[in-house]
């Protein structure tokens, strides 16, 4: 089985330029074109499946929250743009782009798929405005991801400060002591 490794945090996120279905029609979306913005990129196995819609719809439900936080949400699966269009219509509209990652080229670059014809893992990444990877996670195929948790992590990352476990927006951050140690 091919080795699938998530890219290192703080490294440059693998760039991509993919056709996508967006509410405005078919567009080409590149990561470089979103520089200076936070990007939430999530891979899901396939359009027209019975676990994925809960996540796709979950990101749609929280889309305005992500936008308010200055982030762009991108969904990606190996399906083509026409499939994404039908899938978005089936789900009563998706407000963010669905990338057509044919052959899992981008998913493999992100360590989210083992081969060109495998279904990608449920993997989520957050890329900061400098194009560096700030967050990466994967979960087993039968478990849907927590969209609110992804939003919480994004907001925590955006503070640029130390955040304790279960930190929520509005709560106090840890400040690094003068000694430079938290111990």
């Amino acid at each position: 089985m091919p080795k699938v490794v998530l890219p290192a945090l703080d490294a440059d996120a693998p760039d991509f330029s993919l056709p996508a279905f967006t509410p405005a029609g078919e567009r080409t979306i590149s990561l470089r074109g979103l520089r200076d913005r936070w990007v939430v990129l999530f891979f899901y196995p396939a359009d027209f499946s019975f676990v994925c819609p809960t996540e796709v719809k979950g990101f749609a439900a929280h889309y305005e929250d992500f936008r308010s936080a200055g982030a762009e949400v991108l969904g990606a699966s190996p399906d083509d743009v026409a499939s994404h269009r039908d899938w978005a219509a089936e789900l009563d509209g998706i407000p963010y782009p669905l990338l057509a990652d044919r052959g899992n080229l981008v998913a493999q670059a992100y360590g989210a798929a083992s081969s060109a014809d495998a279904q990608p893992d449920r993997a989520t990444f957050i890329v900061n405005p400098e194009g560096k990877l700030a967050f990466a996670m994967k979960v087993a195929a039968n478990v849907g991801r927590g969209v609110a948790e992804t939003l919480r992590v994004l907001q925590a990352l955006q503070t640029g400060r130390l955040c304790p476990a279960d930190w929520q927006p509005g709560e106090a951050n840890y400040d690094v002591p003068a000694s430079g140690s938290l111990a």
Binding site: A46, D47, F48, S49, F50, S83, D86, W87, E90
Partner: peptide
């Protein structure tokens, strides 16, 4: 796949 999904959705 799209038609199959709709059939299963209705069956569900």
């Amino acid at each position: 796949r799209a038609d199959a999904y709709r059939v299963v959705d209705m069956l569900s």
